[in-house]
Design a protein around this nucleic acid. Structure first.
Lengths: 137, 137
DNA sequence: AAAACCAGTTGCATTTTGCAATTTGTTTTG
DNA sequence: CAAAACAAATTGCAAAATGCAACTGGTTTT
């Protein structure tokens, strides 16, 4: 039985990403190239394995990522972004822009984020193309 | 003593907005023209008064909104967006766009959101100007 | 003077999160 | 082949956040 607090666009997004971890996972898959549980566990912010499990299940249920067996390693799974997940790129970029302007971002450590924000729609389009290549089919 | 999980742009944004309510409040101030506690309490999603109090304090502490006495009503306070708050507009628009594309948004009820997304950067610039006029100085 | 309004506050039950240890099975190493 | 390391979780439990309803002290309206 699915239930929504409302059918407002902002709310419907918060119902998926309104927590401290979901977008961290998306960030690591999208920008750090992480594809495995163990890799995602290594985030700078130190996500706990039970939370990671919970979020991966939720993100898969919501159609934002997909999970597939790793060919050649029976107990490994590879996580991919779906198109719905890749479509989060513009949100991530705007979040980056706001954060760089208004929060104490470590600019040296996150130069790639600065570049992405400065790169505009053209760079975004390229990154999107790479993501599609890496994640979709 | 302030402490961050990391100095990544995405994380630093989540440290402020990584919950189910903060952006709902921003939405109501930004797009619904709400300025008072009682008005914000009337959100469609039914925020509880203690949560609202908590988030307004946090958002003010983070410099995203400001709180001022209402002239001519001793116990009323008026909440305004700061420039930092108004700068969230592009994030809200991208959230709206993603949600309209991928989540079960009620398009009839939220036609203004559809318009905003379709309006592009020009409309966004106008809305920004209105917000500055209404909220800053 | 009474009723309604205002911005919260309080108390308490439920839910979510955080952390460390453990589990079940699979690969790799010596 | 046996032992160690790796993989994706699961479990148990304490702490923090959330949700809900009732209440508070004061102000404005009727």
């Amino acid at each position: 039985m699915e239930k929504h607090r409302s059918f407002c666009p902002v709310n419907l997004t918060l119902e998926v990403f309104g927590d401290k971890w979901s977008l961290i996972i998306i960030r690591d898959i999208m920008f750090e190239g992480k594809r495995y549980f163990r890799e995602l566990l290594q985030s700078e912010e130190k996500i706990a394995s039970n939370i990671l499990t919970d979020r991966l299940v939720m993100l898969e249920r919501e159609g934002i990522i997909s999970k597939a067996d790793d060919p050649g390693h029976k107990q490994k799974y590879i996580y991919s972004l779906t198109e719905k997940g890749i479509d989060l790129l513009p949100i991530m970029v705007e979040i980056g822009a706001w954060s760089i302007k208004h929060r104490p971002v470590d600019l040296k450590k996150h130069k790639h984020a600065v570049d992405l924000v400065k790169g505009g729609k053209e760079l975004q389009k390229e990154i999107r193309k790479d993501l599609v290549k890496q994640h979709i089919k």
